[in-house]
Amino acid sequence: MSSTEQGTSSAAPAEPTTAPESAAAPEVPESFYYVHGKDKVVHKVSAGALQHSALIHGMISNLGYTEEQAKANPFPFENIDGDILQMVVDWCNQHKGKPTPPEDTNLPKQKEKLFDLVLAVNYLEIKELLTYCCKQVAMMVKGKSPEEIREIWMIPTDAEDEAAEKEAKKRAGKEAAGETAAAAGDAK
């Protein structure tokens, strides 16, 4: 599991927790990195766990941070809610160094968070977790009628779509008019 700390990204992270190793195995120091979401809570995650995320793995590979540099520069993911990032970090830690089984029981269960979780996992490019999440979304409508699918996937009706489109156009028009007025004001 990851260590989390309340506060800003500059807060000192907790000491890394190390897994017990057999006496025969050589001691290889594990490197850790730090990430935070919208809530600024810093999560300490091992490089092994972060390998699940193609995005972060690519960042790590290119940066070549030392432990000290990593501590000082946590990766900010301002577009991800803190609790969602916690779920993702937990999952990455649980699956560190091992492939995900087809039916993974250690996956986030909070269905109400599924939408945000999918977006976060897609952004962080965690392929295996994304596949599972998409499967969860697809499974929601198995054996359902068109009306039930509309409710579950919150599909707006044509009338609602048209109204939303009109509203969006109206808003865009107002914004454009506002910008024109502001520009005219600046010019004066």
């Binding site: 999918v118 998409c134 409508v141 359902k144 699918i149 579950i152 996937w153 919150m154 599909i155």
Partner: peptide, 28 residues
């Protein structure tokens, strides 16, 4: 718990739809 599927980005929608069968996509 409902999920606003059509607010997903296009590539994600594709990932979800690839896991759906013709009946589900027909209903959708």
């Amino acid at each position: 718990m409902p999920i606003a599927l059509l607010n997903f980005p296009t590539d994600l929608l594709g990932e979800v739809f690839k896991l759906c069968n013709p009946f589900e996509l027909y209903f959708l």
